[in-house]
Design a protein around this nucleic acid. Sequence first.
RNA 1: CGGGGCGUAGCGCAGCCUGGUAGCGCACACGGUUCGGGACCGUGGGGUCGAAGGUUCAAAUCCUUUCGCCCCGACCA
Length: 616
Amino acid sequence: MCRSCRLTRRWRHNMLYSKLLIPTLKEDPAEAEVISHRLMLRAGMIRKVAAGIYTYLPLGWRTVRKVAEIVRQEMDKAGAQEVMLPAVQPSELWKESGRWDYYGKELLRLKDRHDREFCIGPTAEEVITDLVRREVKSYKQLPMNLYQIQTKFRDEIRPRFGLMRGREFIMKDAYSFHKDKESAEAEYWNMYETYKRIFTRCGLNFRAVEADTGNIGGSFSHEFMVLAETGEDFIASCDSCDYAANVEKAECRPPEVVDTRRVPRDMLDEDDGGELKPIEKVHTPGKKTVEEVAEFLGVKTSKLVKTLIYKYARGVNAIPPLRETPQLRALFPDHGMGVAVVLVRGDHEVNEIKLSKILETSEPIELADEETVRRITDAPTGFAGPVGLSGIAYADDALRGMKNFITGGNEADTHLKNVNTRDFQASYFDLRNIVSGDACPKCGAGKIEIFKGIEVGHIFMLGTKYSEAMKCMFLDDDGDNKPMIMGCYGIGVGRTAAAAIEQNNDKNGIIWPAPIAPYEVAVLPLNINDKGVMDAATEIYESLKKAGVETVLDDRDLRPGFKFKDADLIGFPVSVVVGEKNLKDGLVEVKRRSTGEALKVRVSEAARKAGEILTK
RNA sequence: CGGGGCGUAGCGCAGCCUGGUAGCGCACACGGUUCGGGACCGUGGGGUCGAAGGUUCAAAUCCUUUCGCCCCGACCA
């Protein structure tokens, strides 16, 4: 409870609105697009210094500190120890882990006066691993979980959305070290539960979802997603079991391949009748997209199969995707590039993360340019199809359940009807994004729903990736020297504050969950020149302060409307309105920001009532 | 990096096409009237027109270069 934490007492001195730096804006700043960014600027919480780099003003910083304090308390309670690692880190450590070369431009590099290379830490696996390998030698010292709350820097290609995606940002990062897998897994789930407590305490509506491990490496991971319309991530969630995963990661359940002879005719697609029909060429002048073709032929997009040509840097162990025809050799003489023909149902999307894993490439894959498509298919883009192409295509599992579908004809203005899997060579994989309505990959019975979310936390089981690369070893009880097993656990502190706003706002401004509101209560004397009003307001303000409630007294000589607008914009969970009219009857209003509901209570009751609303 | 757009007072914008006194609203200061949902009247202060170069008698305006920022995409613990 923040009302009782030590910080509160220190913050008590200056809570007169007229003395606080809260530069609210009446108009929307031109630079801000998303709600949290706009409201944080308007409420005077943050100001931009450069692209993706912000100053936190008093209100913004108080909220950040509150989130950080909740994180700190829960991490400590979970047995982790707080440390502070350097923001500027030497290149040697990054070279040791291999990430100096791998991390790319996102790593902000700099040189000191002696021309030595450094980076500004985007994360701290290297530094922490270096610390632990020096100081921890024995299994008796393990497990150990160390964390810090620090400013990080990632030179994002395109910073945007204010604190949601800055380049400089505040992150809590924790790293755990273990003697064996069991211990590491136990800590992983310990953190999983800790994160649930943290985001619950922040008053957020969130889901923990299975996630891709990204380039940090490791074996399994969960993301903590705040549910919000403006989220950049898509979450697949089962409506009957507890399965939830990032769409990037969610596996699709392969279709049941039905034996059409045993299925009643009316269960089958109207025009396939269970029979595999012969291929038929159709003229489709200028119809390139799935939607155009489907409309032109009067069928659903799910009757089509999209043929996508991808270019990628081939991994050393990868199987050649296409037979090495002379044509291909001519196209890619360096052998470093591969081309993959990918087939998915017309209404599905290729999941490029799944695809790159299958292709065993770490470089980004991309759709081939028009020229390459033309050379592979002998046709302009929009008319590619698998039939007649040399080599083996990568086909999505969903195709195995399809019959008599439509594909491109590898010829301008031509498509093929009644294509079947017998008509081309393909290997089948799960390589599409899961969609709403799909069967749940876990329980099979439920249906998948898709939600949007904001990633505020991510936990990883790292394994020995860093400990092996950096020789972070310990002596086990069997006398063997072994690499430690690691886990790492991040929380975007600023992003959590922004996500809270995305989830809790209305047309008037922010509606803070009380635990992370910059202040808990605003006392609004509507006319500071009326002695009765001011005395009552001061009395309420003093008793709230005495009770440890973080309260602002709006002592500005402004019209009531102004004070109401500011209070709503800033989002104080509770305001106490002291006006002449009600005061004649000895009453003031206690208003809850979230619902707008206002209770008239006696002056002497106001502080208690406000506190009561806060704890509810 | 590809595509689109914007830099004019603290904020939001007009002026630019068609070159000639730099303007509006909000904010700020002062005076007055107001005072329960961003009041009104009056007065006032504040601008290297992002920067550099060029064209011109004359450039916010036309040309070139450059920097910054925003949006879409690619990318992302």
